[in-house]
């Protein structure tokens, strides 16, 4: 079984937001809302600073609270790659999933359903990378099968130090940040 994930190299990322813009045009995300975003984590005191820049989105968790708490089954795990998706027609917009997500990755679409990153499953099914990955001018993002020992993502995780976000939540996130 494939297990899709992303590996993002924070050493290369410049936080330019091309990933955010590309997601918006690819998926017609309404104005004022976004499925991915940039975080700056700054530590230290000027001028001795450390800054990590991260492109963040739904972590497509292997242990997804948003799926477990969904009363209608709209939030579900897709057969392909374990991607977490929302069936728009089944979603009643109750926001339980929004409350359950430790990453604040979800929002209510103006049409009334919970929305978030889909890993661009419509592209992935055609053998393409998600839009954010495909446009990144720094080539800092990789997408692939975490279960495949020969995939780029697996090899990057084997060769570089990395971390995931809020691992203590126990959700088993599938997005990893190289440091």
């Amino acid at each position: 079984m494939a297990r899709f994930g992303m590996v993002i190299d924070t050493a290369k990322c410049v936080g330019c937001m091309d990933c955010v813009v590309a997601c918006k045009t690819e998926n017609s995300v309404p104005e004022g809302l976004n499925r991915d975003w940039i975080e700056y984590e700054v530590q230290g005191k000027y001028p001795s600073l450390h800054m990590e820049i991260r492109s963040e989105r739904c972590n497509h968790c292997s242990n997804p609270p948003c799926v477990y708490c969904c009363p209608t089954g709209a939030s579900h795990v897709h057969d392909l790659g374990g991607v977490v998706l929302v069936e728009h027609n089944v979603c009643i917009g109750c926001k339980a999933c929004i409350a359950s997500c430790p990453y604040d990755a979800r929002f209510i679409h103006p049409d009334g359903y919970a929305d978030k990153c889909t890993f661009c499953i419509h592209r992935v099914e055609k053998g393409l990378d998600p839009a954010c990955v495909s446009v990144c001018p720094t080539h800092c993002m990789s997408f692939g099968d975490l279960e495949d020992p020969n995939s780029d993502v697996t090899r990057l995780l084997e060769s570089r130090n990395h971390h995931a976000l809020i691992p203590e939540a126990g959700t088993k996130p599938c997005i990893f940040y190289l440091v």
């Binding site: 309404p30 975003w37 604040d104 103006p110």
Partner: peptide
């Protein structure tokens, strides 16, 4: 981001009226 969601609830009406893309 939660704050952002709250704020964006207020902007949804604007977005729906003038969404650049759609």
């Amino acid at each position: 981001r939660r704050k952002f969601l709250k704020i964006s609830a207020a902007t949804i009406s604007v977005a729906a009226a003038g969404s650049a893309i759609v």
